[in-house]
Design a protein around this nucleic acid. Structure first.
Lengths: 338, 338
DNA sequence: CTGTTAGCGCGTTCAG
DNA sequence: CTGAACGCGCTAACAG
């Protein structure tokens, strides 16, 4: 394959001149440029970005490490990231960790080896080690969707606590007192925050926090299915379920179907995360909708700013509000708490 | 940042020995390995894959170029690809072309520059130029989901023609004679194949092909919405709709809702592509479900085989069957055509 | 099992 | 506006 020297020879210039034309770095006269471009075309020259990256220490590649691209919430984030990144001339590598810390570590190692210019991370578990690892290498990082305890980083996330609070308050306003929360893994900040919001709403309503209403599992359909079954297996059954992510919600609904419980007549259901309109026939679920695309956009913008030195010295924490979308699954709204 | 020579010095060996330990290439004694590993750890050495790629001409990076990662069909494919690729030690770059040939070209150029080891491509439009471009560079490629006319390549796709045929036959067996097809862009093979299957079923049933029942648009919700409106605007209205992908289906359903037409009582609906169980409460749509994960898996396996020279000389075309899943949207099954 | 030599294809640095 | 020299960090090829 032709290299930059072949092009230079054919165009009658020095290799560095070709380099400057290709990358629009430095000046070059229109004539020179024309001859270089002709030579590039004639030889079918394709610059080798491994070599240029090796030399320039920039790869124009970013990485988005998330838990599961199969989840529309993350898919939408990914799309936001990719749209902006590609406009800015960056390619994006995606990695699915499946909430596994060891997978996350393996991926991050590879990304460091590939010398990506920056990383967007949805940390599995609390993410402490991972973020520290990357920061030690001085690679710009923005944490997405989840908080990382005790660590200075930029974060873009949704206000899970408030969203959960409002969702719970909605259920309370509908007269529910026995509300079970079907939650994700406890090591993840969104689980913690959503539990906090749930408890705050109960507290305010003068209802005792009770461990028997609090279930912890995984952010998966299977787990939602299981937790719903457990929640309804005992003598004291909840009158409403709060599922803390979309997969849990659908798992729970499947369980309720099996038990022949109607939603919302027999039991009310609310959940976190909405589905894109392009995938829903009859919107039915009352949810706290996270602004996923916007989250991706904001995160990548911060990262790009850091990459061109435009970022402030201070770490930013961008917290976007969830939108409460009331539909049928929560039951009829009788009275809204002020 | 420490480089391989620093490690070599500290371990008292030659750089190449360090290289062999890191990459498990060539032999090295346990003692040597131990000393190298200690040195690596002490210095926090992270191998530079730009340099090794430059030297070895392999990047361990693949690319998946698709139209829209937001579509669960492609998301599922992507997941299949990533799972297998990462097991085999490859990272995957994702690119969204939005069915735009120019975006596709831009991405492919970047991928060539990055010297990816192989490419999986869902071609926008007919994909001829793109595939030719890659093949000229001698980069292994597998085409996914769609056929490319007149070009020798490996292809993994679903049998769209047969799926469409069966779906249409189902509608015919339910007594429908005026069936509108809401189709994707005509430059894409899946559109063509689905139209063919639709027509074959009509022909067999002795029904004349009629252009007024055939709509072409894009594989988007908006387009499905529009086409459904058009299809039902005239004097002669179809009694059934066949939407050729998931987004079109949901757009059409939204239009029907607006028109206050009930499915399936007032009009029957069938579509291509199923939704993952993790995203559906009450499965309702009768669909031709494509084995998306399997398609991704097969495609990446062929690509990996080519990368390690295990592939046969012949190009393969893997055509997987779509599964017809009969649910409510098609109406009651009165009689099944044999 | 390990080492030596050389060079992958570029861009930085300095010079004109 | 253009060029010469050098080296980024690693591994292929060959030797021992």
């Amino acid at each position: 394959m032709a290299d930059i020297r072949d092009v230079a020879k054919l165009a009658g210039v020095a290799p560095i001149t070709v380099s400057r034309c290709i990358n629009n770095s430095g000046y070059c006269s229109p004539q020179t440029r024309a001859r270089v471009e002709a030579a590039v075309a004639e030889l079918g020259f394709v610059p080798n970005r491994l070599a240029s990256g090796l030399r320039s220490k920039r790869t124009n590649t970013l990485a988005l490490v998330l838990t599961d691209i199969t989840n529309p919430f993350f898919t939408t984030i990914a799309r936001g990231v990719e749209d902006i990144a590609s406009e800015a001339g960056y390619t994006v590598i995606f990695c699915n960790t499946d909430e596994s810390v060891s997978k996350e570590k393996k991926y991050l190692q590879v990304l460091l080896e590939k010398r990506v210019d920056g990383i967007l991370l949805v940390p599995a578990s609390n993410g402490l080690d991972s973020v520290a690892l990357i920061k030690k290498r001085d690679i710009p990082i923005v944490v997405l969707d989840r908080r990382v305890p005790d660590l200075q980083t930029d974060v873009v996330r949704c206000d899970s606590e408030e969203g959960a609070y409002e969702l719970t308050r909605l259920l309370l306003s509908l007269g529910h007192r026995e509300i079970a929360i079907l939650n994700g893994p406890s090591g993840v900040s969104t689980s913690g925050d959503r539990l906090d919001g749930y408890r705050r709403a109960l507290n305010e309503a003068g209802i005792n926090i009770n461990a028997k209403w609090e279930y912890h599992g995984a952010f998966t359909q299977e787990s939602g299915f299981e937790m719903a079954h457990k929640a309804l297996a005992g003598v004291y059954k909840p009158t409403a379920l709060f599922a803390t992510n979309n997969f849990i919600t659908f798992g729970a609904l499947k369980a309720l179907q099996e038990m022949e419980l109607r939603v919302p007549e027999d039991i009310a259901v609310v959940g976190f995360d909405d589905l894109p309109a392009s995938l829903v026939t009859y919107p039915f679920l009352t949810v706290a909708a996270q602004p996923a695309y916007e989250m991706g956009r904001r995160a990548i913008e911060i990262l790009l700013d850091k990459l061109c030195g435009k970022a402030s010295d201070q770490y930013q924490e961008v917290v976007l509000p969830a939108e409460i979308v009331i539909r049928q699954s929560s039951g009829r709204v009788r009275k809204l708490v002020q």
